[in-house]
Amino acid sequence: MNAASMNALLAEHPFFDGIPPQYLDLIASAASEARYERRELIFHEGDEASVFHVMRRGKVAIEIFTPDRGPVAIETINTGEVLGWSWLIEPHRWHFDAQAIEPTEVIAIDAGKIRESMAADSALSNELLRRFVPIIVGRLQATRMQLLDLYHVDT
């Protein structure tokens, strides 16, 4: 895939909506397409978070492995969402497993490259954090709602 078509792919993803073109070029230069089959592991708890994914199509389960219950899905990530932010924060390691539960197409972005660029360019850093923070906050809120166990009634 050439740079221009990767650029276009990224531009049509909701996560990059409205991003300045120079940053899109930069991110495109660190991006590649990837495809995962059903049940294929995308990343594994404890591994280095060297890449992050924007979801083009499919469904991925964020799972934690428990000794008694096996893998437990905490959340599913769907088309149009972003998969993973552990690459942003030291020690840059994944805290959960990610497994495709449907055939899934993603754009994989080299986290190391982006981290380097962010360190050198605070405006880029701002631009990306401005997009990631609402996602992180949204997931935190969602997790709190799940903790509330809203649909449960004591009887």
């Binding site: 469904k59 389960a61 964020i62 219950r69 437990v72 899905a73 905490i74 959340e75 599913t76 769907n78 539960i101 949204g138 969602a142 709602m145 799940q146 166990d149 809203l150 649909y151």
Partner: peptide, 16 residues
Amino acid sequence: DSSVGRWRGNVGVVTK
């Protein structure tokens, strides 16, 4: 909200 057993559908809150 909570995945137990063999559920391969969506996990998370409905607002997502």
